[in-house]
Every structure is written in C-alpha cells, then in structure tokens.
Design a binder for these strands. Structure first.
Lengths: 185, 185
DNA sequence: TTTGTACTTGTACCGACGTACTAGTTCGTG
DNA sequence: CACGAACTAGTACGTCGGTACAAGTACAAA
C-alpha cells in the first residue's frame, strides 16, 4: 500500500485518481471501490477521508478547477505576450485543443454544473476567466462572445476527430474581437 | 396500467419517459425501474421491449434526435423567412434559448457523444444542421463559426440564470457571418 | 511506560439494479 | 373451438455499490 501513514498524500492520491476517473469515464463512473483500486488504498480509506461519495466527487472537481485556474493564469500571460492579437490567441488555443484530457475536464465541469446548480460557479470559471483576459483587448461583449465561441470549439473538438483548424479560429476570433455593440446598432 | 395491449403505445411511452428522465436528471439517471414507474408499465415490459438498458438509452436518444431534427427543420424555415439576417437569427435563437428542456436535451446528446464515440453522429447533427442552414447566407467557415458560437451560448445558458441578451447575440452573429477566410489572409 | 488520538484495514449489511424467467392472458387464424 | 404467437406481469437471482463498523496499529504527549 502506498502512502501508509501519510494522510495528506493519501487524500491527494485519491483526489487525483478520482478526478482522472471522472474525466476519462464520465461523472457517474466514480465509485469508492474504483478509487481505492486506482489509488492503491483500502476501501475504508475512501470513506475515512471523505464523508460521502458526493463529497469525494465535489472535492475532486475542485482539484480540477484548481488545475484549470493555473492553466488560465498561464494562458493570460501568453495572451498578454502577444498583445491579444487574434493570430496569437488562435495559435495558443489550437495548442490547447490538442490536449484532449484538458478539454474533457472542462466538459466534465460543465456537465456537473448543468445538473447540480451549486457547482455552477466552478463551471463558470473558465469562460469568465477567458472573458476577463480578452477584455483587455476588446469590448466586454466582444470578449465574452469570443469566449463563448471558443467554448463551442471545445465542444466541437470533443465530438470530432479533427479539431477546427487554426486559420478558421483566427478568422472567427478576429471578427468577434473587433466588434462592439455600438458598432452594430 | 396504461397502454395495455397496445405494444406501439407502450414502447413509445417508455421511450418518451426515458428521454425525459435523462434530459432532466442526466444520462446515468435512467433505470429500468424508473422507466417502468414513470410510464406506468410493469418492470418486465421494459426488458421485453428493449434488449438491454443500453438499448433503451440509445433508442431514447434517437427519439430526442428525431425531435431535434424536426426543430431544425422549423428553424431553417424561419431563417429563410428572414433571409438570414443576423437580427432575425438572433431573435429566433433568443426564443430557442428560453426553452431549457430543449437545450438540455442538446447537451445530453453532447455528453453521450463525448463518452460513446458511436453516438457522436447523433451529437454532431445539431451543429451540422445549423451550419448548413447558415451556409446559404455566409461562407462555409463563417457559417460553422456562427454555429459553434451558438453552441457556446447554449452551454452558457445552461450554466447561468440569465441568457445572453439579444443585442449581444445579434452583434456576434453579424460579425461572424460577414467574414470569410480570404478576407483575413 | 501508559494512554489517547489519529489512522488503517477488512468485512458486512442492505438496498438498488440489470436481467432472466415462469406462469398467465389475449387474440388472430385455421 | 383449438392453437400458437405475441404480449403481460410479477418474482427471483446474482452483483455491485454506499456506507457502517469493529478491531487493530502507530505515534505523540504526559
């Protein structure tokens, strides 16, 4: 057994595999026994460290959110580095899309949020973060529209073998970023 | 018991409640017993009419897709009626967003598609349909970008109490529809 | 060294579930 | 009427899963 007499490590290990399991096999795939098996801890440990399966699930989602937050922070830096140019954003995002685990994690948060209103703040974080970053280079509505488009692209990527190509991304981002509500009134 | 000695009706009733149950409570909420209870048929009927729970699930998803197809057909008419004007599309879509059951059904198809590749064709149908409709009024890439944006808006709506307002929709749709790849090269 | 607290571990209970199955019922056809 | 196919309906079996729990172990403090 790993992490014997290392409460922090055990808890961490269980959260890690729980997050992984949900990302890979869906929200409902998580069971105490599966976590115990993957984290190589006895079944009892899963109930000792987490009040209920729901607690374990929620805690694991929070781990995912924390990782996503970190991701967003890095993205912010890169975007600022390219001064919010559509080409730069498109390139950055194209790279992001190639990591299926990452976008599947995002999707998991969304699914959880749809059916559990109390988890919505977690799910809203990604779009909110992207919107804020882009707001430095576009009108608030334009930034939000771009973030929503990117979310649509994520979904599309999850459902197709080939992602949207970079030129198309660049075109859409450029179009959305350069508009504002006033313009079209 | 309803629908006694009416095989078609029973089958239909079970599919209907199964679809409803999954839309309302998520993909994993479906059980034989729940369907039997909701459709007011004995447990045995659920296994007599469907080889397995998976069969029942998939068949119910197909019912949802059929309804969505019908929906898309109507949307196509409306869009053609307003000659693809962004304002018209925005108004139409704003109305669509107000029906939570409908967009939650779409979301269910997506979730199913993410974790079951064989169901992806079902999930891709909506975006594909919208893209095709819009292609009559914009470049293919622009039409697809618009469809992806609208998908992002759906997701956003599911996660927030207030939907994106119509002016914002109009702005984004107008911006996306009026571009093409060549333009930005 | 004693003791108490935190942690470990295996087992057991109980409900829910998918599915199989049997006995019965209905109804069209010969 | 007889018969068989289609359908009905209730029950039962085996499994899995959440959770409770008891007995044990390690370790820090007194």
């Amino acid at each position: 057994m790993t992490f014997r007499r290392d409460p922090e490590g055990r808890r961490r290990a269980m959260l890690e595999v729980a997050a992984q399991e949900m990302i890979t096999n869906g929200y409902a795939a998580l069971t105490h026994r599966r976590v115990a098996e993957l984290a190589q801890v006895p079944l009892g440990a899963t109930t000792y460290y987490f009040e209920s399966l729901d607690d374990l699930r929620t805690s694991a989602l929070e781990v995912i959110v924390a990782q996503a937050d970190e991701e967003i922070r890095q993205v912010a830096e890169s975007i600022h580095a390219c001064q919010g140019s559509p080409a730069g954003i498109a390139a950055l995002f194209a790279a992001y899309l190639s990591d299926r685990a990452k976008i599947q994690a995002e999707n998991l948060l969304y699914y959880a949020g749809v059916y559990q209103p109390e988890l919505r703040p977690l799910a809203q974080r990604w779009v909110k973060g992207i919107t804020e970053i882009l707001s430095a280079y576009a009108a608030p509505e334009a930034a939000q529209a771009t973030a929503l488009y990117l979310d649509g692209v994520i979904l599309h990527t999850l459902l197709h073998d080939r992602p949207i190509d970079e030129p198309a991304l660049r075109m859409a981002i450029a179009a959305l970023m350069s508009t504002s509500l006033e313009e079209k009134r």
